[in-house]
Amino acid sequence: MSLQLVLFIVFGTVSAVSSVLMITRRDIVVSALFLILNLASLAGLYLILNAQFIAVVQVIIYAGAIMVLFLFVIMLLRPENEKKFLEANPSIKIFAFIIGAVIFLQLAYLIFFSGPDNLNNASVAASVKAGTIEEIGKQLYTNYILPFEAAGFLLLAATIGALVLAKKKFE
């Protein structure tokens, strides 16, 4: 067994098990912790695929920044109220099931029917080069400058919007 395969089995198992544990736990904070573990193990999988920049950004943005805010909100709010809401509206579970099934089918279709053959052609050296931060930066600032700037503009607008909304409350 190559080192890559061993690492793949380790990270793959951790991510699969943690995602199942995440949706089966009663305590919402414990669920959030398993989501963090899941995101971190996905970062490990990205590293095996030579996508070093994506891997480290996954940890910084998802496992770090976003999940800290999630935990923050969960701790400050009272999750018991959510349970009462669920008990009062049992039909919401059906909606959740339908949406989950649709997303699952979509992913299954993408994985099994949209031809992964064209992905395997890229040589290892090319994929190592494509995953480096230098190459991603070059692509972002040349070929993809317009979508990149548009995304930046959108995020700036959202930040200013959040600031305006938060300020209104205090005045």
């Binding site: 971190a40 920049f53 480290v56 950004v57 940890v59 910084i60 496992a63 770090g64 920044a65 800290v68 931060i133």
Partner: peptide, 9 residues
């Protein structure tokens, strides 16, 4: 970036 990632953890 590795250092920043760990400090965010």
């Amino acid at each position: 970036l590795y250092v920043l990632a760990l400090s965010s953890i």
